[in-house]
Nucleic acid binder design. Structure first.
Length: 225
DNA sequence: GTCCAGGGCCTAC
DNA sequence: GTAGGCCATGGA
């Protein structure tokens, strides 16, 4: 069965799509807003991030030039609702400095670089780890990179498709290896996983009992759920 | 009051 | 190289 994993992954995506519809990610009007959101949403509810982004817009701080030039305190005040606001203000400023220093504040210039090389550069910026880097690559730059998050590990380990103790890059490789390398698919698949996780795969429960999608998936002869 | 959210860094072993 | 502490607000 050389394509068993691929078939399962595509089937799960199809079921998610059927249930939730196209997720239309990433919510954000511009690529820079998407990137800022990727930093602001680290371990934080998206509703809190939306308020922070609205506040940054209101104060005209949502640009690499503005962020890199204003004092930390001004950014902190605007993004307070997103939590970890001191760290995140520093991270937004650091990323903006990188953007303007390395690429003259020109996003298209940055996006024109190969995904692998750009990923390495992003990871060297303090405050940008693997998930944030991949979110930027996929949702702002449109590169075919699969984004892994806590929900991804939780859902697919409970579905028995991964162990759950793998490192970030191992899980990412699992999806990239077993799915067609398509940014539109990667984009919506990750968004679907988040939707599923939020609704049916809570941290505090040992398995996704109520998960309507995984319940329809049969692994081998027996149902997992 | 408790739990959790679309992580990542730093420090100990 | 990895487990554990830390960062912090706001909604359920």
């Amino acid at each position: 069965m050389p394509h068993a994993k691929r078939t399962r992954l595509l089937k799960i995506y199809f079921l998610l799509f059927k249930r939730f519809g196209h997720r239309k990610w990433w919510p954000g009007e511009t690529p820079f807003e998407v990137m800022a959101g990727a930093i602001l949403t680290q371990n934080t509810n998206w509703a809190n991030v939306e308020k922070a982004i609205a506040e940054l817009k209101k104060r005209k701080l949502l640009s690499p030039i503005a962020l890199s030039s204003v004092p930390n305190a001004a950014v902190e005040k605007a993004i307070r609702s997103s939590g970890y606001y001191r760290q995140k203000a520093e991270r937004l400023k650091g990323f903006s400095r990188f953007l303007c220093g390395r690429y003259g504040c020109d996003l298209q210039k940055m996006f024109s670089r190969p995904a692998g090389a750009l990923r390495g550069e992003l990871l060297s910026v303090k405050g940008i780890g693997p998930e944030t880097a991949d979110s930027i690559l996929l949702y702002a730059a449109g590169k075919p990179v699969f984004v892994v998050d806590a929900y991804t590990k939780r859902v697919f380990s409970r579905a028995g498709m991964i162990r759950g103790d793998e490192g970030y890059d191992d899980v990412r490789a699992f999806f990239e290896k077993n799915l067609p390398r398509d940014s539109a698919l990667f984009n919506d698949y990750h968004a679907q996983i988040v939707e599923l996780g939020k609704r049916f795969c809570l941290k505090s429960e040992p398995v996704c009992w109520a998960c309507p999608v995984l319940a329809e998936c049969r692994f081998g002869r027996k149902r997992v759920y």
